[in-house]
Amino acid sequence: MGLAFESEKCIGCKLCEMACSASHEEMFNPRLGRLRVGSRYENKDLVIEGHVCILCGSCADACPTGAIEMKGGRLHYSKEDCINCGVCVDVCPESVIVQKEEDVGVCDLCQGDPWCVKSCPHGALTNKEVSSS
């Protein structure tokens, strides 16, 4: 049901974040990716975490103008309808909605062929489609 992240396979390369930002924002900027992965050393341990859109629909529910909609198993975002209130950013349980200057960045599963999945070298990210919502 959408994106899945397996930390045992993640090497922390962040190719996913770079590809996501590049495909949506025309530049490589991991902070603009609609997902977050991190691999770091803390207290002599290697800590790996990943956050992806889990298709919970909280953003669509919270959006006051309907700029975010859940349809056909993925999110749809309309910039024209967005008033940039930022409520979606706050309610997202995975904190993967990106706040930009004039609008927000929402994971749309790249309309079926996610760039993050394609860019992951060792299969830490996978996408399982559901046929209807």
């Binding site: 090497i11 390369c13 190719l15 691999s39 070298p121």
Partner: peptide, 17 residues
């Protein structure tokens, strides 16, 4: 071995923790 780690943008990930 207790983990694997890569540099930024690396598809290989040679680091062994």
């Amino acid at each position: 071995r207790a983990g694997k780690k890569a540099c930024g943008g690396c598809a290989l990930g040679c680091g062994n923790f």
